[in-house]
Amino acid sequence: MITRLFRSGLLALVIAVFGASCGEDGTSDQSIGGQPLTDAKLSVYVVNYPLAYFTERIGGSLVDVQFPAPGDQDPAFWSPDASAITRFQEADIILLNGASYAKWVDRVTLPASKLVDTSASFKDQYIIMPDAVVHTHGPGGEHAHGDMAFTTWLDFKLATRQAEAVFEALQKARPDETERFQAGLDSLRTDLESLDQALIAFGKETTDTPLLGSHPVYQYLARAYDLNLESVHFEPDEAPSAHQLSELQDILEEHPAAWMLWEGDPAEETVAILEELGISSMVFDPCANVPESGDFLSVMRENVESLGGIVALANQE
């Protein structure tokens, strides 16, 4: 014990002496992380547009919201370059969607103290995709590069909880502005609740109506509003291949859907092919990126109105 302590003492002596060998270097250079919050606008970086919208609604003029993903890319699969990562690092708050959204987050260096996982409070409600490929090799054992549904905000109750997480992050950074943030949250919550109520009503009227999703992005929507929805992997700007159509026909045998929801306007050729199969197309934009016109709320209202069209047609039939 004494020998060990003596050895440690000597080691510490040597270590400390090493550290004391030279003078100060007065270079003025780039700081890394940890800059104090000032009275300037809170710099908030986000990984998708819904979070940007929520933050702007809650923070108003007190926040400078930055969503650096290009408008023509899906933010879920976009990867920032080093300079974009540096800008994220310099933010006051970084809002993540959670649920494996934006997988680049796991592969970059971000200040953990600034990260806010807006869906952390409902992790137990994440939807795991059933068809993730599992593989085994080497000593690591069986594992899957798993796929988790991530468009959480299409369940507007979950979206509200994400908005509340945004509020908490802003409030923590600027406790003096809690009242203004609270007012923003209350207003947003009202809007989200009205969307939620509209979709609950839609779900009740279409419980048994089979629907199709052109892409597997509507899982939370389907679960929250009790939609009978199956998804394929069609791209809006590409006509489906023969293989994709064959898979669709297999699905239709068990799931005779008359409507397919699209993230964006599908190609005319695709619409025509689907019409031949008795499937009408309608756009339900998840609005993961900045819309060409309007904002998150207006896009979601348009989505709800479009769904209303299905109900109207169903009632006519």
Partner: peptide, 15 residues
């Protein structure tokens, strides 16, 4: 940030 370390050349860790 905690240790007030600064980059002399290049950039901080990113990926």
């Amino acid at each position: 940030g905690f240790r007030s370390l600064k980059v002399a050349k290049g950039r901080p860790l990113a990926t």
